[in-house]
Amino acid sequence: MRRFEFAVDREHARAVNEVVAQLRRLRVLGIGAALVLGLGTAFLVWVNHPWSYLLAVAFVLGAATSLFIGLWTPHRARVDKLYAAGELVPAVVSKTDGPGATLLALVDLAKPNADGPRYALVTRTVRALPGHRIRVGERVPAVTVRIDRAPGSVGDLWQSVSAMPIAWGTRDLNVIERARSEIREVEWELLTDNLDLADKVRDVDAKRLLLDPQQLPDELRG
């Protein structure tokens, strides 16, 4: 896995990093849901009917799950940890929309136990890209954020992989340029040649488009 080390600017990341903002919202929702379900449990116990106790058990389980999400999210939301754990990947602006843009990224969905890489195209809509020109074809180095939604899930592929721009973690243009230069030219060219697939990727349910290994450049075959 290709890592990229740099000093994360936490203040900058808190202001612009949309992944961190999403995780913060998830934390608030988790804690809020736990409180509501906890109050519902207390009410059902107060009702003191057989059916209310059955519902109370379900409410307790839901409250425990929501509380776990709320408490676990801050640990995951540490932006420096997210950047350290991710793999450096290329992303290219495929569409512009005022100050925002749509990125098309090349990611490896394979888990460590898989037999070789499984490349796919994924998209991400961003509101801002500090340090970049918002134009089609702009090269945006990023890192992957990998998630398995189901605990103990099986299979060789990650359920969800998204791209988080390096520019959301630093103001230093030299860092962005260094990350860009560490990505092979063949990867940038593959994205540039497939910009027209961005709309197709956004329309599929899985939000990703697996690439045929036989059609990849030799340098990307496992």
Results as ranks from 00 to 15, higher is better:
Arg2His: 04
Arg3Glu: 02
Glu5Phe: 13
Val8Met: 15
Asp9Glu: 14
Glu11Cys: 12
Arg14Leu: 05
Glu18Phe: 05
Val20Gln: 11
Leu23Cys: 11
Leu23Pro: 01
Arg24Pro: 01
Val28Pro: 07
Ile31Leu: 14
Gly32Ile: 13
Ala34Thr: 05
Ala34Pro: 00
Val36Gln: 08
Val36Thr: 15
Ala42Pro: 01
Ala42Gly: 04
Asn48Met: 07
Asn48Leu: 07
Asn48Gln: 06
Pro50Gly: 01
Pro50Cys: 00
Ser52Met: 02
Leu54Lys: 06
Leu55Tyr: 13
Leu55Val: 12
Ala56Asn: 05
Val57Trp: 10
Val57Asp: 01
Ala58Tyr: 14
Ala63Met: 13
Ala63Val: 10
Ala64Gly: 08
Ala64Leu: 15
Ser66Val: 04
Leu67Ser: 00
Phe68Ile: 08
Gly70Arg: 10
Leu71Arg: 15
His75Leu: 11
Arg76Tyr: 06
Ala77Glu: 10
Arg78Glu: 07
Asp80Phe: 07
Ala84Arg: 14
Glu87Ser: 10
Ala91Cys: 15
Ala91Lys: 05
Lys95Tyr: 06
Thr96Ser: 09
Gly98Trp: 13
Gly100Trp: 05
Gly100Asp: 02
Leu106Met: 12
Val107Cys: 09
Val107Tyr: 07
Asp108Ser: 06
Leu109Cys: 03
Ala110Lys: 06
Pro112Phe: 07
Ala114Phe: 10
Ala114Gln: 05
Pro117Met: 11
Pro117Cys: 10
Tyr119Phe: 15
Tyr119Leu: 15
Leu121Lys: 06
Thr123Ala: 00
Thr125Asp: 15
Arg127Trp: 13
Leu129Tyr: 05
Pro130Lys: 13
His132Gln: 14
His132Ile: 07
Arg133Ile: 01
Arg135Pro: 05
Arg135Glu: 12
Arg135Val: 04
Arg135Ala: 11
Gly137Ser: 04
Val140Leu: 03
Pro141His: 12
Ala142Thr: 04
Ala142Glu: 00
Ala142Pro: 08
Val143Ala: 06
Val143Cys: 08
Arg146Gly: 00
Arg149Asp: 04
Gly152Tyr: 08
Ser153Gln: 05
Val154Ala: 12
Gly155Val: 08
Gly155Met: 10
Leu157Ser: 08
Pro165Thr: 06
Ile166Trp: 03
Ala167Val: 09
Trp168Met: 09
Gly169Asn: 09
Asp172Arg: 15
Asp172Leu: 13
Asn174Phe: 02
Asn174Asp: 01
Val175Ala: 02
Ile176Trp: 14
Arg178Ser: 04
Arg180Asn: 08
Arg180Asp: 00
Arg184Lys: 15
Val186Gln: 12
Leu190Tyr: 05
Leu190Gly: 03
Thr192Gln: 14
Asn194Pro: 09
Asn194Arg: 12
Leu197Gln: 10
Leu197Arg: 15
Val201Gln: 03
Val201Leu: 04
Arg202Tyr: 00
Asp203Val: 04
Ala206Tyr: 11
Leu209Met: 12
Leu210His: 09
Pro213Cys: 12
Gln214Ser: 04
Gln214Asp: 14
Asp218His: 08
Glu219Met: 13
Leu220Ala: 02
Arg221Glu: 00
Gly222Gln: 05
